[in-house]
């Protein structure tokens, strides 16, 4: 499969998760965490932009990062379902971030040695960001799991809610030599998650049917509602410069 498609998948994951995190801005549980969530959103947005620009080059159709972000419909987005899941409460947002970073940190680590200079370049920056997201989100998973009865119940509910969605991280429609093999990251992901769950006193539930479809553009219903406001100015004013 084409590197274009593989890079687009990655870019979509980053943009959609960044967008979700940005929805928290101004509404966080405390100011300090409001700033932390925005920092993570900006990290992801930075990677998304580099990846979209690279995808546009690979595609060779003279499209820009904004064309790719703003002018594709739900069916043309290839992010995994996990990143488009609604924010839910703080436990759900932090768990989603933790799952994603527990995947991306080893992914970028492996991509440091990519034969593709752009990919290894992105990896060099993103691996540090993901290491921080993994640590910070992991700290919260521990605190909410090992906090009060209320927080523990909410954290366990978040784990159950997201349980059908993490396995899709290890799939791709577009295996490509320039990028690490997603399936191989599963062992590391499970080790990270289990170690934090042990500290948090949380149980990883029994397997359920893993939902998939993001990689072929078949999403949940929420993605369209996210893209509609995001894309509305670009759609309403074709060709305008902002």
């Amino acid at each position: 499969m084409s590197l274009y498609q593989a890079v687009l998948e990655l870019a979509d994951d980053h943009l959609i998760l960044s967008h979700r995190l940005s929805e928290w801005c101004g509404h966080g549980p405390m100011l300090e965490e409001d700033l932390a969530l925005s920092n993570m959103a900006l990290d992801l947005l930075g990677s998304a932009r580099t990846l979209f620009s690279y995808a546009a080059v690979l595609e060779g159709k003279n499209r820009s990062e904004d064309d790719l972000a703003y002018l594709r419909s739900e069916r043309e987005y290839f992010n995994c379902l996990l990143v488009e899941r609604p924010n839910g409460d703080f436990s759900c947002t932090m768990l989603r971030q933790f799952y994603f970073a527990a995947f991306m940190e080893p992914f970028w680590q492996a991509a440091l040695g990519s034969s593709d200079a752009v990919i290894s370049g992105v990896a060099g920056k993103a691996v540090k960001e993901m290491a921080y997201h993994l640590r910070h989100a992991g700290e919260w998973v521990v605190r909410l799991g090992d906090g009060t009865d209320v927080s523990r119940a909410k954290m366990q509910a978040a784990i159950n809610d997201l349980h059908p969605y993490w396995e899709e991280l290890f799939t791709t429609q577009t295996a490509n030599d320039a990028l690490p093999d997603r399936a191989e990251i599963r062992t590391q992901w499970e080790a990270s998650v289990k170690s934090v769950f042990v500290q948090a006193g949380l149980a990883f539930p029994d397997p359920v049917h893993a939902q998939q479809g993001g990689r072929i553009g078949e999403h949940g219903e929420t993605l369209g509602h996210m893209l509609a406001p995001m894309q509305y100015l670009q759609r309403a004013h074709p060709g305008a410069v902002w």
Binding site: A36, N39, R135, R143
Partner: peptide, 14 residues
Amino acid sequence: HAADEVLALDAARD
């Protein structure tokens, strides 16, 4: 403000 020293360090960074 932070509940413990780990969160305080993260918040200081953020």
